[in-house]
Design a protein around this nucleic acid. Structure first.
Lengths: 137, 137
DNA sequence: TTCTTGACTTGAACTCTGTCTATCGTAGGA
DNA sequence: TCCTACGATAGACAGAGTTCAAGTCAAGAA
């Protein structure tokens, strides 16, 4: 995410300390934080940052395609900074741990025309579920 | 769902008018109602039915495998009565319409061992996204 | 450098979705 | 018909997210 702020500035974004901190918190592989977790970590760097700003910033980053919104359970959305390399998710049914995975093949090709109901299909999200090594003991 | 109540009675369920109404509302193909929508429709048939009862009944039906919980967006869960035939979902990115679809191939086979991180993977859920005919105009 | 302005942030109230609990009602067996 | 344990109810509560009015400040202009 290091050049993220430069990209955002290029898109006309005003670069504020709040946005810098949110971008900083969302960095790394296999990072899938909820908005509240992002807020908690951001508040360690910038104590007065508000929840509304975190929500706004995350929604803006998502609509710009800089982070992915992932909702693997019915609970809080999670935010995935690994948006520039296509991937799917593997979730532990017990503890909720999430890993980024890269299946082979093209899932879009597996949906025959007669199963498309006239839709223009552009994307396929796959969630694999199972037990992680710790929960499988 | 016509024989659903018979199956539930066989499992020791007490058959009440509330449960009958919830089962009646959840009938048909491509039905994906939220709990509140189920409650609204049930209340037309049985005005005094409470929200808690609808939530309880839906959760019980889901844990018995009689309906599927589907969460395609971060919003309310939807309940899919088509639980006895494996299928995936196709969602309109604009209006949220959901269709049941049946892709070819086996997505589980597309996840190589080195991408499984030691998980015991048991299931793959696919959400196809695109624009439905009405929204594609 | 200082000014200006509209984009950004804040915090509190609010909505939406779902859960819990104490109390009341009733399906179905004796 | 009567009993009673299971189910239904209303309303309070909780978690996640949104809205809004008012205040603040990044960055271009002078």
């Amino acid at each position: 995410m290091s050049d993220l702020l430069a990209r955002l500035r290029g898109r006309g974004w005003r670069v504020t300390s709040q946005r810098r901190v949110v971008a900083e918190v969302l960095d790394g592989d296999h990072v899938h934080l909820t908005a509240d977790e992002v807020h908690a970590r951001a508040a360690q760097l910038l104590p007065e940052i508000s929840r509304a700003t975190v929500y706004n910033t995350l929604a803006e980053l998502a609509s710009l395609g800089e982070v992915l919104e992932v909702s693997t359970d019915g609970r809080a959305k999670r935010y995935d900074p690994n948006a520039h390399r296509p991937h799917q998710h593997l979730v532990c049914s017990n503890c909720g741990t999430i890993r980024d995975v890269h299946p082979t093949g093209d899932p879009l090709a597996d949906l025959p025309a007669e199963e498309r109901f006239g839709f223009t299909v552009s994307e396929a999200q796959i969630t694999y579920r199972g037990l992680c090594p710790s929960c499988n003991g």
